[in-house]
Simulated scan of single mutants.
Amino acid sequence: MDGSPVLAAGATGALEKSGEGGEGTERSAGAYRPGYELVAEQILQLIAELRLRPGDRLLTEVELASRLGTSRTVVREAVKILSAIGRIRAQKGRGLYVADDEGMLGSSRWGRFFLPTDLEHVYDLFEFRRVQEVAASRLAASRATPAELRAIETAAETCREGHLTGRRDLFDRGDDDFHISIATASHNPFLVDAVREVRRLQRQSSTIGLHGTVGGHAEEAVAEHAAIHRAIRDGEPEAAALAATVHLDKTLEDYRREIQHRVFG
């Protein structure tokens, strides 16, 4: 389970704008998106169109507002979001820059051009996650130390507690720790970096896309985490790989179901 599903603007068909200069929100079949989220998405698209690389200077807030047909206030809020998730840097007195990203995928096409509200990108990211995390789970079942097994179990319990208490922050923290702990137990540093980076990109989807609750898959996710942990603890690589596959496939299905609900009601 990984945060709330997202909704690509292109997936909704014709959208209606309220307000002037793009400062309102967009509605389609019941979907709601604040104007600053839309502008954040547009800024990412602009970075891709201009082929800007980490360290390159971006347009000023005034120039962005003019180019995107919105106000500087909305651009400023969008910049705050993009700064918080590490996509741009705001340097006082110097302007806006595409953020330097030292992550494993930072210099790749995904690191530069991943669009958090593009459904195709999100689905491709899930496909990539499936390859990584199934491999990590299989290796962890053969290589995990007692300390690493305890870390996986603790993370799973944190996630479970977050679900039972309705604390999304606790659930998300446990979820992150669970998947990264498994990658760590694989003893493959490339898998650790890849899992961490892909989860960072996926968090961007939840931040810029539609916000929601933990999701209908949360209770199942807790049970699926337990199954993955048991297989790794018992030293059963193929069982661990299968449990990880089931978990990721069901998580993706939850995203698809929630997106369909938000688009079509």
Score class of each variant (00 low, 15 high):
residue 107 S to R: 10
residue 51 R to H: 07
residue 50 L to C: 07
residue 128 F to Q: 09
residue 48 A to G: 06
residue 54 P to H: 03
residue 26 E to N: 08
residue 77 E to F: 07
residue 41 E to A: 05
residue 49 E to F: 13
residue 129 R to P: 11
residue 19 G to E: 08
residue 25 T to I: 10
residue 126 F to T: 01
residue 129 R to N: 09
residue 120 E to N: 05
residue 60 T to I: 08
residue 31 A to T: 06
residue 92 K to A: 13
residue 108 S to T: 00
residue 108 S to D: 00
residue 27 R to H: 09
residue 109 R to L: 13
residue 68 L to W: 02
residue 135 A to T: 14
residue 101 D to T: 08
residue 138 R to L: 03
residue 55 G to R: 04
residue 87 R to D: 00
residue 128 F to N: 14
residue 99 A to F: 05
residue 59 L to W: 12
residue 106 G to A: 03
residue 33 R to S: 15
residue 104 M to R: 12
residue 115 L to Y: 12
residue 16 E to A: 11
residue 56 D to H: 15
residue 115 L to A: 08
residue 34 P to C: 14
residue 117 T to S: 01
residue 97 Y to K: 11
residue 54 P to A: 00
residue 75 V to T: 01
residue 20 E to L: 03
residue 124 D to S: 06
residue 66 S to L: 04
residue 134 V to D: 00
residue 56 D to C: 15
residue 86 G to L: 01
residue 93 G to S: 03
residue 67 R to G: 10
residue 133 E to H: 05
residue 48 A to H: 06
residue 130 R to C: 10
residue 40 A to Y: 07
residue 34 P to N: 14
residue 133 E to Y: 09
residue 73 T to D: 13
residue 81 I to A: 13
residue 46 L to V: 00
residue 117 T to V: 09
residue 98 V to R: 01
residue 45 Q to Y: 09
residue 102 E to G: 10
residue 63 E to M: 07
residue 45 Q to W: 08
residue 46 L to K: 00
residue 56 D to P: 15
residue 33 R to L: 15
residue 96 L to P: 01
residue 38 L to V: 11
residue 31 A to F: 06
residue 68 L to M: 03
residue 84 A to N: 08
residue 89 R to F: 07
residue 99 A to M: 02
residue 38 L to G: 14
residue 27 R to A: 11
residue 43 I to G: 07
residue 76 R to H: 05
residue 61 E to K: 15
residue 23 E to F: 13
residue 77 E to A: 04
residue 95 G to K: 01
residue 94 R to K: 00
residue 61 E to R: 15
residue 134 V to N: 08
residue 102 E to F: 10
residue 41 E to D: 08
residue 98 V to H: 02
residue 70 T to K: 15
residue 120 E to M: 06
residue 84 A to R: 05
residue 52 L to K: 11
residue 124 D to W: 00
residue 92 K to S: 14
residue 28 S to Q: 09
residue 119 L to K: 03
residue 51 R to G: 04
residue 105 L to A: 04
residue 76 R to C: 00
residue 123 Y to S: 03
residue 73 T to M: 10
residue 63 E to T: 11
residue 87 R to K: 12
residue 64 L to P: 09
residue 50 L to E: 05
residue 58 L to A: 11
residue 119 L to N: 01
residue 63 E to S: 07
residue 35 G to M: 08
residue 82 L to H: 04
residue 16 E to D: 13
residue 47 I to E: 03
residue 99 A to Q: 02
residue 80 K to S: 10
residue 121 H to I: 13
residue 80 K to Y: 12
residue 134 V to E: 01
residue 120 E to V: 02
residue 85 I to P: 04
residue 15 L to Y: 11
residue 71 S to D: 07
residue 114 F to H: 14
residue 88 I to M: 01
residue 73 T to F: 14
residue 113 F to I: 10
residue 107 S to M: 14
residue 124 D to I: 01
residue 24 G to D: 15
residue 129 R to E: 13
residue 53 R to C: 05
residue 125 L to G: 04
residue 28 S to V: 09
residue 44 L to A: 04
residue 59 L to D: 11
residue 85 I to N: 03
residue 99 A to T: 02
residue 87 R to P: 06
residue 39 V to H: 04
